[in-house]
Amino acid sequence: MSKHCVMGLFSDFDEAFAAISDIRKTKIPGVSVDDVTLKSPIEHPEIEEVLGERPVHLQKFTLFGAIFGVTFGFFFLAAAQASFLVQPQGGKPVVALPSNFVLMYEMLIFFAVWGTFLAFLFLSGLLRKRHSLYSENVSLDQVGILIDVDDSNLERVKDLFKQHKAVEIREEEIR
């Protein structure tokens, strides 16, 4: 059975959110709210109520980066000092912990920040070709609801969008 990808564009945000919660409630067979992608010009923390909890794993990479940074920092600095014995200076020990703590702190942040950024690129699906149903209005002032449906449900979804005053509906066959 062939599938279609439908996108409805809404200029009234409340209507768009209502459409999503309708999808959630009416249970069109084979159409679940988990298949819905919301495209929006701004960030909507409040949409999670209708869209359902979708987990974000970014902070784990931050934690990993931070832990890596601080342990790597310690061993890197101490090992470098221990293999560079010209360093006894000013009556200070070879491995000078107070100054190493400062550098470990910086390395913690350095690796945490870069780890987070690289994970962000990966987890949020950037650096890929955009979906062919992209509308430039999404970056202006309209909200788009993107959903993959079986052909049998196509009309019902489009009706739902129309009901909620969709400005424009685009569709595309998925091969």
Partner: peptide
Amino acid sequence: GWSGNDRQWRNFRKIYLLMACFLIPLAVS
């Protein structure tokens, strides 16, 4: 390739918050 979908925005909100949290102690340090 930003297209403004909810996955991007969710991660975006998180990274912005995380970066802000790291930048404050970093700037002070």
